[in-house]
Design a protein around this nucleic acid. Structure first.
Lengths: 196, 196
DNA sequence: GCAAATTAATGATTTATTCAAG
DNA sequence: CTTGAATAAATCATTAATTTGC
């Protein structure tokens, strides 16, 4: 018997076919129960574990996003180079997100990812607009009492003079434009957004 | 047409670079005037507000500490495991799979389902659906065994049977192995014989 | 034709973000 | 401010495609 039987799962064509079909149907992040069932089902076509299903969806989703992002990024670069905006608007990718397929696992009315961390970006910057219902210290509104809050309360005073960036402390940081990876301007900053 | 201009700040690579450089230089908790200056400087590279800077340093500092703590913890674990096994490493949570964990009981209840993930993964590992046992020591999580299977069991959905491949929902994926459909979409179907 | 060498895909891990609760 | 939970992003690692010299 082979000493190194198999270090990793290798999906059979049937398994792959089914997984892709599910993905096309909108499955993105199956929960434990779903993974369990999928695994059971796919095990009919070959050895498979729950983690394989989990990883598959994770990777497939990620690489799908990656593909899209790269595509958009390229477009963005073209547009940006043509206009060269002062601040490149973070390009998000409003893309795939499961249209709650009723085909798969009637749970919770078809929703699978009720609150995927997609609209996560919404919160930080909008803190001022949702400060009302803040129970206590958790909301950003609570820190508005800090000294720095006074500063940001006056966007005008700041923005009008936002142009001068010659500061003693900041001088120390040469604006060396380090080569970012790919994805152009959205590499590390990971303006990860996804739409629900 | 900037579709939904994302309500929160997304640092540009330049901004991020500068912030990180400042952090490396020792900046941790800038006061209002410092934040003001930083904001002014960074606004050259993109839209930004004082609160963004404030939050960034706050979070970055926190995560840095966390990182350090984690690293130290890991080292200690290694040393401890080599010498004495006083108690399970702090990274592990023996009670993770407790059946009363509310996370896994929302599926049928019309509740929004919280995120899943690491915990789930932990459970998924080393839970083979076929006969062959996982090669000992391949994954770092063989410690959990198949606990996840028990965990994800739904209390009242009635579909907790994972033994049969024919699941009502999965029936929808016709296992038609009509030997075809190998088009461009499955160009990645590596492995196995009948690929393309 | 064939294997060693190289490259492309992709499974599996690790790390970083994010939100929410404490 | 801290910590837990759940990803998503980044990365590592292995397998399959393919290229290449013979």
């Amino acid at each position: 018997m082979p000493q190194v039987p198999s270090t990793r799962w290798c999906p059979t064509p049937e398994q792959l076919m089914i997984l892709e079909e599910m993905y096309r149907s909108g499955v993105r992040t199956p929960n434990a129960s779903q993974i369990q069932q999928i695994t059971s089902h796919l095990s009919f076509y070959g050895k498979i574990e729950g983690k394989n299903v989990f990883y598959w969806f994770q990777n497939h989703k990620a690489r799908d996003r990656q593909k899209l992002r790269r595509r958009l990024s390229r477009q963005q670069v073209q547009v940006a180079s043509a206009s060269l905006p002062p601040h490149p608007p973070p390009q998000f990718f409003p893309h795939l997100y499961q249209p709650h397929n009723p085909q798969f696992f009637h749970q919770g009315g078809g929703f699978q990812e009720p609150r995927q961390g997609l609209d996560l970006l919404r919160k930080l910057e909008t803190c001022s607009s949702r400060d009302e219902a803040s129970p206590s210290g958790t909301s950003p509104a609570s820190i508005y009492g800090c000294e720095w809050a006074a500063m940001i309360r006056e966007p005008n005073s700041g923005e009008s003079s936002m142009c001068c960036h010659s500061l003693k402390t900041l001088e120390l940081f040469p604006t060396k434009s380090t080569g970012l990876k790919e994805e152009s301007s959205t590499s590390k900053s990971s303006c990860s957004a996804s739409t629900n």
